[in-house]
Nucleic acid binder design. Structure first.
Length: 596
RNA sequence: GGUCCGGUAGCUCAGUUGGAUAGAGCAACAGCCUUCUAAGCUGUGGGUCAUGGGUUCGAAUCCCGUCCGGAUCACCA
């Protein structure tokens, strides 16, 4: 039970006793006391004036006096304007701390096996190019939110939907056929996704040459762009693919296979895993039957050319195409199909799509269509819409070569961590493989934290020149705090200090109380970030805790403390902070080192 | 043009049911290592919370208008 809950019921009954009216929850406003005032928790009196019919000061005093009189845990109070600042006794804090100390993973809830799961779809890459910074944000958000939901007590199923078909991969295929000379990732020593991506770029280069040539022959730009031979060849390849031409399929499988090998590497480096991977080549025909169903229900209508539409103008949206005149489906058709497929498969209580904010309209339409089709779970579809990662000069543009490649970025971060570590020299006595492990943790921690500390729905700016910080509000700062604590604990063990419960007679100082309060807020932080689908809340929490601990560490000695009870308490406090930091960082997908 | 999102220190960001004097980090400057890890700690400077109104005991937060930025409104995905 946290302090707010602890005091809310006490204040409620006091108000009822004095003035005869029971206040509702909204009228009982308890909040952390601001640092400039004395006290632990503050009751805001203004909402209660309607009940008390007294001045704010009188109301505060009346409640404060009763609190002290009735409850031994309450040490005292002071009143400033309409604020009742309440102080709790040292033993109250020691007791709550011991309570936390006795719990294994404080703040984490075991998931409920019997409840329906939450399905979360994220990553969803195209197989024509390597992952970039935008994908990193998507993957990190998906992974982190999955973990947060899981530890908030939900069952989570992580799924990926790979866009492995369409004209884009055919472009890479045609370029490889024309210019590849049988080259493979192995023979060229390139990572598979990068290798295939290069042929996609090669296609574009050739395409432009051909367009210029056609223009020189007198065609307009528009004509040239639809008549370039290499484009026609790519489209022909797509038709062959759809007709299941064996040679085409074989090449498609080969090239996608290269890409997947590359993706697997990147996912593994980033620490991303899935419970299930879907492929669009297997799902792109889904949803067509549902269109027929919708037609018969009169939800959709057919135009003269045979195309099928839904009119959403009454809902403030537009008309939306669901099936082309030639009977082929569009993206949303597939999404209708996959949603139904997944519901049948998992019976989810929520289905989260981690997709950029440029697709908000799409998901708005999807949800509405599902509702109109009569699926009562349509409200369970949730678009976790995140903002773009921008460069100082704006959007990343592949044409201008400003796209920040995921693998390159990770490598740079790790190398920066290495330079910094070498400079500090703290790992000089550590063996190479451990050092490499730690450096990787730090480099990736810096990157992940940098991205996850920002509110998902906001756009964020990434400046490649200034590179990501390792000091201040960063992942390494928190990792450092953890390593520092672990070092102290190791020394405590060497000194033979035995762990045990904290002595109830000690009286925690101000910094220690602040830490106890902060630790007590971790469960709430987990629950909030889960319900908001927002890892940034965890990041901010971890930072605040680390910062607070460092102040404590600076101001007080732990192992050299002479009073054995106090020393043990400080060691216990340090252990709990380290565990909480570790768990919070785990929720962000960030590992913490024992030393750095 | 319609819809949605955003605008907080020079820069990157916190600020969650409306609460006290709006906070961090970076950058700048000044301090703190014979003492448990200085990737740390302390201090200084830096703000008409885009803007104008409204709601009330009280507004960065809620409502309306205006300005600026972004996304979207495809027989693309």
């Amino acid at each position: 039970m946290n302090i707010e809950q602890f005091l809310e019921e006490k204040v409620r009954s006091i108000v009822k006793d004095i003035w005869g009216v029971e206040p509702d929850t909204g009228q009982l406003q308890l909040q952390q006391t601001r640092k400039d005032f004395e006290g632990d928790i503050t009751l805001v009196a203004f909402p209660l004036l309607k009940i008390s019919h007294k001045s704010p000061e009188e109301t505060c005093n009346a409640i404060g006096e009763k609190l002290v009189e009735l409850h031994p845990e309450i040490k005292g109070f002071n009143v400033i304007k309409g604020f009742l600042n309440i102080s709790l006794t040292p033993s109250y804090w020691v007791n709550t701390f011991n309570d936390v100390l006795s719990q294994k993973d404080f703040g984490f809830k075991a998931f409920n096996q019997t409840e329906d799961p939450i399905v979360i779809e994220f990553s969803s890459p195209n197989t024509n190019k390597p992952l970039h910074l935008g994908h990193i944000r998507n993957n990190l958000l998906g992974m982190s939110i999955s973990r947060i939901l899981e530890k908030s007590g939900k069952r989570v199923v992580k799924v990926n939907l790979v866009n492995d078909r369409g004209v884009h991969i055919c472009k890479s295929m045609i370029a490889w056929m024309k210019f590849g000379n049988g080259e493979t990732p192995q023979s060229s020593g390139k990572k598979g996704d990068l290798f295939v991506g290069n042929y996609y770029v090669r296609f574009d280069k050739e395409f432009k040459v051909q367009v210029e040539k056609l223009k020189a022959e007198g065609l307009s730009e528009e004509e040239a762009k639809v008549k370039a031979p290499i484009l026609l060849e790519a489209q022909e390849l797509l038709r062959k693919w759809e007709a299941k031409d064996p040679e085409t399929i074989a090449l498609w499988e080969k090239m996608n296979g290269w890409v997947y090998k590359g993706f697997d590497q990147t996912y593994s480096d980033l620490g991303i895993t899935f419970d299930k991977t879907y492929y669009e080549s297997q799902t792109y025909l889904l949803g067509k039957a549902e269109v027929a169903h919708g037609l018969s229900k009169g939800v959709f209508h057919k135009k003269d050319d045979g195309s099928v539409w839904i009119d959403l103008t009454a809902d403030g949206l537009d008309e939306k195409l669901l099936l082309r005149a030639d009977g082929t489906s569009v993206y949303i058709t597939q999404d209708i199909g996959t949603a139904i497929q997944r519901y049948n498969e998992y019976h989810f209580q929520e289905h989260i799509y981690v997709v950029g904010n440029e697709q908000e309209y799409h998901f708005q339409v999807l949800k509405l269509i599902m509702k109109k089709l009569g699926y009562n779970w349509s409200d369970a579809l949730y678009h976790l819409s995140y903002g773009m990662v921008l460069l100082p000069e704006g959007k990343m543009k592949s044409r201008e070569g400003t796209v920040v490649d995921a693998d390159d970025l990770m490598n740079e971060m790790v190398e920066t961590a290495r330079d910094m570590s070498n400079e500090l020299g703290k790992l000089d006595d550590v063996d190479t493989s451990t050092t490499n492990q730690i450096i990787r943790m730090i480099g990736l921690g810096a990157l992940k934290y940098f991205i996850l500390k920002v509110d998902p729905k906001k756009n964020m700016t990434f400046n490649p020149k200034e590179s990501i910080d390792f000091n201040g509000n960063t992942g390494p700062f928190i990792q450092y705090t953890h390593a520092r604590i672990r070092s102290v604990i190791r020394k405590a063990n060497e000194m033979g200090i035995i762990e045990g419960k904290t002595d109830n007679n000690i009286s925690p100082n101000e910094k220690e109380v602040t830490l106890i309060k902060l630790i007590g807020k971790f469960p709430e932080a987990v629950q909030n970030s889960a319900s908001e689908h927002n890892p940034a809340l965890i990041a901010n929490y971890a930072y605040e805790l680390a910062k607070e601990y460092n102040q404590f560490y600076h101001d007080y000695s732990i192992l050299k403390e002479e009073n054995a009870s106090t020393r043990l308490f400080r060691i216990n406090l340090s252990t709990v902070v380290a565990n909480t930091l570790k768990n919070a960082m785990w929720l962000l997908g960030i590992d913490v080192p024992e030393m750095m």
